[in-house]
Write a protein that binds this DNA or RNA. Structure first.
Lengths: 172, 172
DNA sequence: CACTAATTGTTTGTGCACAAATTAAATGGA
DNA sequence: TCCATTTAATTTGTGCACAAACAATTAGTG
């Protein structure tokens, strides 16, 4: 505990050095993602969109109609997250939701005319933000690709962790 | 609207191409950050910590006591977010909160003995995750540094946007 | 000293985010 | 056909996250 025994620090659990916050990749991600959301917020507010709602519209503009589950896979969100989010967007008039006649379990989601009309504004936002960031387009693309590679590794790690659960019967 | 007029696509706002979700840096960040949180969740649950609570402990292990505001600056979180989070951690016995006698507006936060005792377990988590990710340590550090540079640019952009608000008096 | 202004944290209201339980519909045998 | 199983979405409960309003304390100014 005192200054004397600094000869070996191997098994000294009382003065283990704390993992530093600013050296954690996870915190760098958490932080950058939060700041990005904050940056989008005031730009999206005039369109009546939150940031996750904006991502949902991006997904729907690309392909629609889609089921709740498909949207969840694309966005990496739980259906339990999407249901209330989509309801709010429906109330806001940006999307429509209806049961799939061919399979009544599914709910088909697609933009309304009003929702489609936001596409142009969304492109304006992309351009506005591209100017805000003093980053080379190439560096930006490189970062994006690195992150996407990381994401697929994280997805794999997650699955691996699930599979690594003891399959025999002494769980819980 | 039909197939015919595809000669010039310049000012044709009816078929502007949608910004693709998987080409957005913001979505790459959002996605990777969410996956990282999901990966930590089951590892932190046995310690009685959520992911933001874990980041809070990292900050406090490094320096304590700290005020709510200082913690907010470090973590990039609003005081209104931290107050209930810290109350839950206090109930869980991991931290203590008390008013600063020298300035009764401030609240000083620091780990309890029980909170300090989690440090070793936290280091175990770092190591466990380091093994899970099939990433070169150097690549990982590079990504982290790039993200931190992006973050400081995002902070600057945010401030800039605030300063760019029209200072004259025709707002609302 | 009195009184305004600034600082610090909390409260309130809205919206994400997920686990676990639930409902409803489709599927696959026996 | 009947019924257990699976699939899809929703509900319920807990916890982050922030804007705006609020309360309490301190600092500044006459």
């Amino acid at each position: 505990m005192t200054l004397s025994d600094t000869t070996t620090q191997k098994t000294d659990t009382s003065r283990v050095q704390t993992p530093r916050l600013d050296r954690q990749l996870c915190f760098a991600l958490y932080s950058a993602s939060g700041l990005m959301t904050k940056l989008y917020r005031p730009l999206l507010a005039p369109l009546g969109l939150t940031y996750p709602q904006y991502l949902t519209m991006l997904a729907l503009w690309e392909k629609a109609p889609r089921t709740v589950g498909e949207l969840g896979d694309t966005l990496g969100l739980d259906p339990a997250t999407l249901t209330p989010l989509l309801k709010r967007m429906e109330v806001g008039g940006l999307i429509s939701r209806r049961r799939d006649p061919a399979d009544e379990r599914r709910v088909l989601v697609q933009p309304t005319a009003e929702g489609e009309a936001l596409r142009a504004a969304a492109i304006g936002i992309q351009e506005a933000l591209g100017c805000q960031l003093p980053l080379e387009p190439a560096e930006l693309a490189g970062l994006r690709d690195t992150l996407n590679r990381l994401s697929s590794q994280l997805r794999a790690a997650e699955i691996e962790a699930v599979l690594a659960e003891p399959p025999d019967g002494n769980e819980r």
